[in-house]
Amino acid sequence: MIYGDRHTGILVQGATGQQGSFHIPHMNTYARSVGGRGVVAGVTPGKGGQEVHGVPVYDSVRAAIAEHDVGAAVIFVPAAAATDSIMEEAHAGIPVIVAITERIPVHDTMKAIAYARMEGATVIGPNCPGLISPGEVKLGIIPAHLASRGPVGVISRSGTLTYEVIHELTRAGIGQSTVVGIGGDPVIGQTFTDVLERFRHDPATKAVVVIGEVGGALEEEGVASTDIPVVGYIAGVSAPPEKRMGHAGAIVEGGEGDAASKIRRMEALGVPVARRVAEIPALVKEFL
């Protein structure tokens, strides 16, 4: 439990949209199964007074928090409006903001994250699947049936690759404390360093899987910043340089951020790095 628990009331921004209305019942089914509060309010400007799967919708975050105790927000609005949503929630005092939205221009992201920091809010994402603390809370779209409760934290820049990893961990009988998708964009609110710091202070977490990919150096920086046991995996060993591999942030630029150098640097810090996803559970077991 590092960003919320079963007592966290969730606000969904973009509640009446296709994505929002699809994921609200999934989050609430999960909340019911673990005795959590789930989604308590939705926001879509102009749709105040409606309900989505029994969740009341408000015109603004301000109006929603006047009626509900909200500990975290999940954003499903389109890219053009997403950073306004981040700022609206931060301004309203919501401490944890998960931005699922992809394809946000990076200048907008930089501004929204800088603003949220000034307001004291923590942003996860954008372009991320959110997080799940099995048995406690799901903030976002990670398929809950793949996860199981246990001592291993997972941090990833990817969505479905994260699902693959927790699927493998669960099959190997290794449960997860919290799984955080930090997002595939070059600029993201919570980096590996930030999440590793939270895990270090989390009594439920004994070891962490860091799932990185080509582009930047956030993986190495994160691993170097902590003393919690870490197992690594880096996607994009076969990625050609100067090509964007799906994620806006997944690009080897100017000879920097390639998978081989990331793996080398992580291993130099004493971190075992799996060459295949299927190898991850065995490496994690060494630390448990």
Binding site: S156, R157, S158, G159, T160, L161, T162, Y163, E164, G184, I211, E213, V214, A235, G236, V237, S238, A239, M245, G246, H247, A250, A259, R275, R276, V277
Partner: peptide, 21 residues
């Protein structure tokens, strides 16, 4: 594949087993 990370990991695995995507 679906998802950038999973698709990249699939390419890597192809290379690992000696194939070319």
């Amino acid at each position: 594949g679906n998802g950038a990370g999973l698709t990249m990991a699939t390419l890597d695995l192809i290379q690992f087993y000696g194939g070319r995507a």
